[in-house]
Amino acid sequence: MKFEDIPTPAVYRLSFYLRQLEAFQRADRHTISSRQLGEALGYTDAQVRKDLAYFGQFGHPGIGYKVDELIGQLRKILGTDKVWNVLLVGAGNLGRALIAYRGFLRKGFRLAAIFDADNTKVGQPFGDLKVESMDNLAQLVSDLNIRLAIVSVPAEAAQNVADRLVAAGIRGILNFAPISVTVPPEVSVQGVDLAVQLEQLSFKMSLTGTESGESPANG
Score class of each variant (00 low, 15 high):
V196W: 07
V89S: 05
A155R: 03
P7A: 08
M1K: 10
P185K: 10
A97K: 12
I71W: 01
I179L: 08
A40L: 08
Y43G: 02
G59Y: 00
L98I: 14
A217L: 14
L137N: 07
A40N: 09
Q197I: 13
N145V: 03
D116S: 11
A162Y: 03
A10G: 00
S142E: 12
Y12S: 10
G42S: 05
L201I: 15
Q57I: 06
R29V: 09
M1G: 13
Y65M: 07
Q47E: 12
K130D: 05
Q73A: 14
K76V: 04
T31D: 04
V151P: 01
L207E: 14
R110E: 15
T182S: 13
Q47M: 09
L70T: 03
Q197E: 15
D135Q: 13
G64F: 05
A158C: 09
G127I: 08
D81K: 04
H30P: 00
L98K: 04
R26C: 11
K130S: 15
A138D: 06
P61V: 03
E22S: 06
G127D: 03
E69Y: 06
A138M: 06
S202E: 06
S15V: 13
N119L: 13
Q197F: 11
L129P: 06
L137G: 09
A177D: 02
L144D: 00
E186T: 04
E199P: 00
F104R: 04
I32E: 08
Q36D: 12
T182I: 13
I6S: 03
D28S: 13
A158K: 09
F3E: 10
G62C: 06
E132R: 14
A162I: 02
N119I: 10
A112S: 14
H30F: 12
L70N: 06
I179V: 15
H60I: 15
Q124L: 14
W84G: 07
K82C: 07
W84I: 07
N136Q: 12
E211G: 08
W84S: 15
L194F: 13
A53G: 03
K121L: 13
F176G: 02
V11C: 05
F16T: 04
P154A: 08
G213D: 11
F115I: 12
Y12P: 00
P61A: 09
V89P: 00
L129Q: 11
V153M: 03
L201N: 02
S142R: 13
V67F: 10
D51P: 01
R35C: 01
I63L: 12
F126P: 02
D116I: 12
Y17W: 04
F104W: 15
L207Q: 13
A97S: 15
L111T: 08
P178L: 08
F3W: 10
